[in-house]
């Protein structure tokens, strides 16, 4: 049976560390698929102007296109080039919630994310996405420092 590892990418410098660790794990496991996920931060409960609403679908398509072409595809192609089994996903929503949902949907064995250094005041008060994921995930989570 093929093992699956969900790798969360955030577009920052930490993700190469997350990918490096995921590759190491995949090599150790042997038959393993890497699912590279990029989450566009989005909430259904924000406030927008009518004009932003009218253009929302167009913006969403642009966001998916940008994340796919700039982050996910290069990562997936690089992994495949190195002989790994890999595919990519781009979703809108809350990072922690979505990584957990995707892990469940895909029947993944593990989630790998990197620890980001961009933790603002709000994150200090309410906890970071990484901390939220670690607390609530139903599969093991590896946070790469």
């Amino acid at each position: 049976m093929t093992a699956k590892i969900v790798v969360g990418l955030g577009g920052g410098e930490g993700e190469s560390r997350a990918l490096t660790y995921a590759k190491k794990m995949a090599k150790l496991i042997g038959e393993c698929e890497l699912i590279v996920v990029y989450v566009v931060e989005w909430s259904p409960y924000t406030f927008q102007t009518p004009e932003e609403n009218a253009e929302r679908h167009k913006r969403r398509e642009q966001e998916i296109e940008a994340a796919t072409s700039r982050v996910v595809n290069p990562a997936v192609e690089a992994l495949r080039g190195e002989g790994y089994s890999a595919r990519g996903l781009v979703r809108h929503g809350d990072v922690a919630d979505l990584l957990e949902i995707i892990a469940k949907e895909e029947g993944a064995d593990q989630i790998v994310v990197s620890r980001t250094s961009k933790e603002g005041v709000l994150k200090r008060v309410f906890g970071s996405s990484t901390a939220h994921l670690v607390m609530h995930a139903s599969v093991p989570v590896t946070v790469v420092a």
Partner: peptide
């Protein structure tokens, strides 16, 4: 997700 929600 990512489209205009009913709430918005």
């Amino acid at each position: 997700a990512g489209e205009v929600s009913h709430f918005q």
